[in-house]
Design a protein around this nucleic acid. Sequence first.
DNA 1: TGTTTTTATCTCAACGTTGAGATTATCAAG
DNA 2: CTTGATAATCTCAACGTTGAGATAAAAACA
Lengths: 170, 170
Amino acid sequence: MSDAVDAIIGQWTKERPDLTEDLWPVQVLGRLQRLGRVLDKEFRTFAARRGLELGEVDVLTTLQRSGPPYALPAGALLKAAMVTSGAITNRIDRMEAKGLVERVREEGGGDRRTVRIRLTEHGHEVTCEYMAAHLANEARMLSELGREESDRLAASLRKLLESFGDTSIG
Amino acid sequence: MSDAVDAIIGQWTKERPDLTEDLWPVQVLGRLQRLGRVLDKEFRTFAARRGLELGEVDVLTTLQRSGPPYALPAGALLKAAMVTSGAITNRIDRMEAKGLVERVREEGGGDRRTVRIRLTEHGHEVTCEYMAAHLANEARMLSELGREESDRLAASLRKLLESFGDTSIG
DNA sequence: TGTTTTTATCTCAACGTTGAGATTATCAAG
DNA sequence: CTTGATAATCTCAACGTTGAGATAAAAACA
């Protein structure tokens, strides 16, 4: 049983034996980095087959899971997506052109700086269909790992995320 | 104990109770996706502070760990980095301008299509310094997780990578 | 009230990657 | 020794993100 990261660590051990004792974090972080790439590619392809950008899916699902009225200020989307403001503006522009979301400015006495991004009827339907397919795909991806090991793995990953300060959405 | 992914799952459970049973993969894949982002940002910043692009570090370390003569064909770098050919060409261009690597064409009877990318003396030094600092940083990042749990975590991650077909470098 | 600071979003040029196509070289078959 | 297919690299336009700055509104303070 050996993956790409084992091979990488083996190469380092041979090339720099003096670092052998310091290589253990690579077992985790190297794999996380690599898994990040693999998942990103997988999800991107999955989304593209349905005519969506990965960043767009991000916005759609964030709005959907926020519950009625399926609208959030741009700033909230920005934080949830962990991207910069320019990226969110561009995404909204594209998605508005596709009819997936619409910009809604506060009427009356509200804060007129904030722009609420609201899921359209069409966007809502697209998101529902997408989520069903996406969850099925995710279950398939983890089929070899099994439910029990997935739970244990999730616990360690949470611990790691927490230690990185990723403690909540807000 | 609750992280951003717990919050996300909680939102979905409330908004779409019918999907509750199907949300378990998100515990793993959602966190992996998120960790990918976090690590990418962390490593990118770390590299930037030392005047390097993350993709450039990728090339440097791949060459270094390949051992003497610290030279690989462009295609090998391409696969190791999991990027397209255009990206590698650009990286090599930049790094050649910085004096980190040099393009070496096969002399004599070799395959004249292949271009070997070789670490320069300067590139070699930069890589050595970088690796030492990088490994120290990685150890720090995992300090809260501990060695033992890191090993268990690594085992599950390897299983996952293998099930995704990421079995070796070549 | 007027001034300053902070907050929310948008603008835009620079940057790196993608992905298709071009180029050049090797290999296999006739 | 051609012909055709495969392989390695480079070219280049399109794309999404970044990050600094602009704009405008709200809040804090004098």
